[in-house]
């Protein structure tokens, strides 16, 4: 059997706009990946536990409320604490360009703004997986 890429798609924080997260989830499924959709209002702790228990290769975070600088780095930090640095973390949503260098310095591999084609995300995952 082939090895499947497993992705957690999560919405940290309180905003309920999940159109982007759901479109991405479908696109990843249609690219042959297994997507674990955790839904709205996830704490970084919940997201990290899900990533560990589900043996995820990737954590994809979506946020539109502006709380990204607080919540994204927290997810990476907690993964590190659990010795799971090999899980790829990236984000998307309404995120000002000025914040991206900060987020990248905190271990967010990439930030996808509005209008990013889903294929870009699929390709990014395939080329940036940290685990074989």
């Amino acid at each position: 059997m082939e090895r499947k890429i497993r992705v957690i798609v999560a919405k940290p924080g309180l905003d309920g706009h999940d159109r982007g997260a759901k479109v991405i989830a479908r696109a990843l499924r249609d690219a042959g990946m297994e997507v674990i959709y955790t839904g709205l209002r996830q704490t970084p702790e919940q997201i990290v536990q899900a990533a560990l228990q589900e043996d995820a290769d990737v954590v994809a975070l979506s946020i539109l409320s502006g709380a990204h600088n607080h919540l994204f780095p927290r997810v990476v930090e907690l993964l590190k604490e659990k010795g799971a640095e090999d899980i790829l973390v990236f984000g998307g949503g309404v995120i000002p360009e000025d914040d991206i260098p900060f987020l990248k310095s905190k271990g967010i591999a990439e930030v996808f703004g509005p209008g990013t084609p889903t294929q870009t995300t699929v390709d990014f995952i395939k080329t940036h997986l940290k685990r074989s």
Binding site: Q42, A50, Q53
Partner: peptide
């Protein structure tokens, strides 16, 4: 699993998130 792509969207976990951080509970999709 999707019969077309072989991928899947697994959403059951969503409703068990209340136990996500309890070390006595393990959930796997």
């Amino acid at each position: 699993s999707s019969p077309f792509s072989g991928g899947a969207i697994l959403g059951d976990r969503l409703r068990m998130q209340g136990h996500a951080v309890d070390p006595g509970v393990y959930i796997r999709s």
